[in-house]
Amino acid sequence: MLDYRGKTILITGGTGSLGSALTRYILKEHPDIKQIRVVSRDEQKQAQMARELPLSHFPQLQFVIGDVRDKARLIRVFDGVDYVIHTAAMKDVHIAERNPDECIKTNIGGAQNVIEASMEAGVARVVALSTDKACAPNSLYGATKLVSDKLFISANTTRNETGTTFSVVRYGNMMGSSGSVVPFFLKKKREDGVLPITDSRMTRFNITIPYGVKMVLLALETSWGGEVFVPKLPSYRIMDVANAIGPDCEKPIVGIRPGEKLHEEMISPSDAFYTYDLGAYYVILPSSPPWPVDDFITAFKAKKVPPGFSYNSGENTAWETVDSLKGLIKAFKKD
């Protein structure tokens, strides 16, 4: 178990859906933590979060305006930090397609800045958030996150004299996060009762925000350096989400947009060469790990996946139903 007592943890993109949930969870479960630095470039979200978590009750909180594109700023705010969780990214697939240079600056340049600032500050552990779209990407967003993943993985062996460990968590669509399908459909239902469907065959992996928090902290606590953690998740059909939210709404088919897939992958057949099953989740090991693989297998009772294995939302064995989605959406609306 990782010791949080007297430690300082920094969360980039800390005012986002996952970042704010991580902050709340850590404050609740580890009140003896020294400090949580919430770093983001959105002062309005910081002000809102500070109202919800007032410093009079949570003196461990420090809100810091900063952009991952600004390496000099990161070096300053990473000083004295023990653990970093990197959630900041440009995430909208369609905006990224229209603004590729901006996406590259944030998702790739920002990732390298986080790596270098972590090394310079002597941070002990770094976990970077990824996406299923980074597996066999066909969108610019996915391609930038794949590059980001590889930067974090290679950082464990490249110019890393401080001993900082870097790992990655790859997950599917986070239910209820800003920009995700559930709040979009809820908004469209309220506005005009029309839920636009890109393709009725479309599927996605589904992860709740609490489970996302759990996976990130699992990686932070157990990583040896260089792993990609992949949770085992249920899939949903886009039509089931639409029917759970608005069974009586119109559902016109509008066609797949640039950068979208019918189904998402989290583990490709090429990844299978390095993928191990750890029970509740998979781990993709680096091709040249900086530690003995046999020791890892023994420590975690890891089992190698079969050759040609892939983890695809359309071929998944676990599925959300309309009823289960209604329950998750109801819980999300309460929050």
Rank of each mutant, 00 (worst) to 15 (best):
D92Y: 01
S200T: 13
L146M: 15
P54V: 10
M90Q: 10
P196C: 12
S154Y: 01
S178L: 05
N312V: 08
I115T: 03
L22Q: 05
F296T: 05
G279F: 10
G66P: 04
Y311W: 03
V168S: 09
P307M: 08
D335K: 14
K333H: 03
R170K: 13
L217R: 06
S56K: 12
G163A: 14
G6Q: 11
I245D: 10
N206M: 14
L218T: 10
K303F: 00
D294M: 04
M119L: 15
T158F: 13
D149K: 03
A21Q: 03
T317N: 14
S268E: 02
Q112V: 01
Y282K: 08
D335M: 14
S270T: 09
L328Y: 11
I26Q: 09
H86K: 01
T321Y: 01
L262I: 11
T203P: 01
S287I: 11
A302S: 03
F309K: 06
I115H: 08
E260M: 14
S180P: 04
L262S: 02
S270I: 07
R41C: 04
V228K: 07
T157C: 04
I85T: 04
S154R: 10
F273I: 13
A244N: 10
H94D: 04
M202K: 13
P183Q: 04
L129A: 11
K188P: 00
A318E: 13
G246T: 06
S288G: 07
S17V: 00
L328K: 15
A318V: 13
R51S: 11
D132H: 02
I9M: 11
V126I: 04
F166D: 03
Q60N: 05
S40E: 04
Y282A: 09
M1W: 08
F309A: 09
L53Q: 05
L55A: 14
N138D: 11
A134E: 11
I245G: 08
I284C: 12
P292G: 04
D132Y: 02
F300C: 02
S310L: 10
